[in-house]
Structure formats: structure tokens, C-alpha cells
């Protein structure tokens, strides 16, 4: 099968379990926490899969496991056909080229002492160390205009940028080595609504142009509706419901999903209309 055949599974998580052990002694002893408790999913090439849940649902733990920022207690994560839970540091290094991340907080995820040009070029320096400086500069320029920062001087520091501009820099850094999968961990949650709109549109444009797949971690069901092809609803570390986004949001099967959707603000007009219709 060819590299980019649709329906090819890019990421397969099977029975992921992450247990944080008990800590402390006596009165301060905490019980062990099963943050992720048997989560399985497939993500196909070119697809956006959203993992949605409230705080403590385990959604970020899943993201961190996929990125191998921490190890899982049990279960397997197959990325591009390889089980990455067993790879050594060196082997993982090669995988990271295809597996990048955009974090929530554009203020904390950029090194305040690095200039923009260096921040965006860093993945290239790491993964293509032999590349000529001039060539690297050119790719950085290209990438910056792709994320709509074409006229931004590269010698700026992060603190000179707005939140939306910083998030664009974070996206440029993630995409510069042309990854296959981008994990977006609450990537638009900290942004103003108009900026969030721009970043969401940018992410979907780039997906088309570069053939990306996204694992989108979010608490916001409106964002899920906007970006995701499929959605996984997590609660207490377990998958409550899974399916095509429109199907799950329009016809939720589970009580928990229904309550979650009902709690999303901005449905007063619909509620009042329904009230009128039933009277």
C-alpha cells in the first residue's frame, strides 16, 4: 500500500493504561490514580481525531503518551507501523521527525531567550544537521509566510509578539520538518475568539496543503465540531463514546455525552424556540 493511501492507519493506540502510583505516608498518603484506563483508538492518514473531556479525564495524559513525554503503564502505541512504547531514546529521535506538537500556552512553550528565526529553525538543526545555513534560512522564511508571519522580522523575541502570533510561531516550529502527525494539546484554548478563528482556519488550510493528520486534544465541543472528523469522548480515563463528529454531537448515545453537550453555552435561542414549540 502506498505511503499516503487514505484509510491507512497512522496511529493506533491499544488498551492504554497510565497509573500514577500512590505517594506519601500516613495521613498525606494518596491513592494511586488510573489517569488513563484502557483507551484504544485509530487515527487514519489525513484525519483529525479529537479527544474531548473535562479536566481529569485523561486526555492530556493520552497526548503525552503518544508523544512519549511519559511512558504508559501498559498498552501499545503504534505509530506508522512501529510500537513506539518500546523504542529507545535514539530510536524515538527518528520518530519525532514525523510526530510534532503544538501546546496550549504560547507564552510558555517558546524559549524567551531565543529569537523567532532560531525557534522555528531548531527542529531543522536537530533533524537535518547537515543542512546549509542559507538553505535553512530559506525554509524558515517559507514556513513563516505559510503561517501568515511572512513580514515578521526573524530577530524578534517571543515577548514582542501577541498571543496569536506566538501560537503561529509554535505551529511553524511544529510543521517545519514536515511531520505526519501533529498533536494539538488545547492549541487554541488560550486565544481570543477572533485569533482562535484565524488559528483554526490556518490549521485546516495547512492540513489540506501538507496532508497532515491531527490529534486534537480539547475540552471545547464547539472546537471539536469545527475541526474534527472523528471524536473520542473521555471520562475518568475511559472512552465513553466514539464516532464521526456530526454523529456524536447530533445524536449522542451516552448520557454523559448528552450532558456534556447540553452544558455548552450559547444554546439559549434553541432552548427558547423548543420551549415555544412544545407549548
Amino acid at each position: 500500500m502506498s505511503e499516503n493511501a487514505p484509510n491507512r492507519v497512522l496511529l493506533r493506540a491499544q488498551d492504554l493504561v497510565k497509573v500514577y502510583p500512590a505517594r506519601g505516608i500516613g495521613r498525606t498518603r494518596t491513592r494511586e490514580v488510573r489517569a488513563v484506563d484502557g483507551v484504544s483508538f485509530d487515527l487514519k492518514v489525513g484525519e483529525t481525531l479529537a479527544i474531548v473531556g473535562e479536566s481529569g479525564s485523561g486526555k492530556s495524559t493520552v497526548a503525552n503518551a503518544v508523544l512519549r513525554l511519559h511512558d504508559v503503564t501498559s498498552g501499545s502505541i503504534e505509530f506508522d507501523g512501529k510500537d513506539i512504547t518500546k523504542l529507545s531514546r535514539g530510536q524515538m529521535h527518528a520518530i519525532r521527525r514525523d510526530l510534532q506538537v503544538v501546546f496550549q500556552d504560547p507564552y510558555e512553550s517558546l524559549d524567551p531567550r531565543m529569537r523567532l528565526g532560531d525557534i522555528v529553525a531548531e527542529p531543522l538543526r536537530i533533524h537535518s544537521p547537515d543542512m546549509k545555513r542559507s538553505e535553512r534560512q530559506e525554509i524558515v522564511r517559507e514556513m513563516m509566510s505559510l503561517v501568515g508571519l511572512g513580514s515578521m522580522p526573524l530577530d524578534r523575541y517571543p515577548h514582542q509578539l501577541s498571543g496569536g502570533q506566538r501560537q503561529r510561531v509554535g505551529i511553524a516550529r511544529a510543521l517545519i520538518i514536515e511531520p505526519k502527525l501533529v498533536v494539538c494539546d488545547e492549541a487554541v484554548s488560550a486565544l481570543d475568539v477572533s485569533v482562535q478563528a484565524q488559528v483554526l482556519d490556518l490549521l485546516s488550510d495547512l492540513k489540506e496543503r501538507l496532508g497532515l493528520s491531527y490529534l486534537f486534544i480539547t475540552h471545547d465541543l464547539a472546537v471539536v465540531r469545527q475541526v474534527a472528523d472523528r471524536v473520542l469522548v473521555l471520562y475518568h480515563g475511559q472512552v465513553v463514546e466514539e464516532g464521526m463528529t456530526d454523529e456524536v454531537l447530533d445524536h449522542p448515545r451516552e448520557e454523559y455525552t448528552r450532558n456534556l453537550i447540553a452544558a455548552v453555552p450559547g444554546q439559549r435561542a434553541e432552548r427558547e424556540r423548543m420551549k415555544k414549540e412544545t407549548v
Binding site: A222, V223, R225
Partner: peptide, 9 residues
């Protein structure tokens, strides 16, 4: 226009 809605894409 910028606010995503849970009801429609």
C-alpha cells in the same frame, strides 16, 4: 462569525 458553534460547522 469567529465563534465556533457546537451545533453547526
Amino acid at each position: 462569525a469567529s465563534s465556533p458553534s457546537v451545533r453547526v460547522r
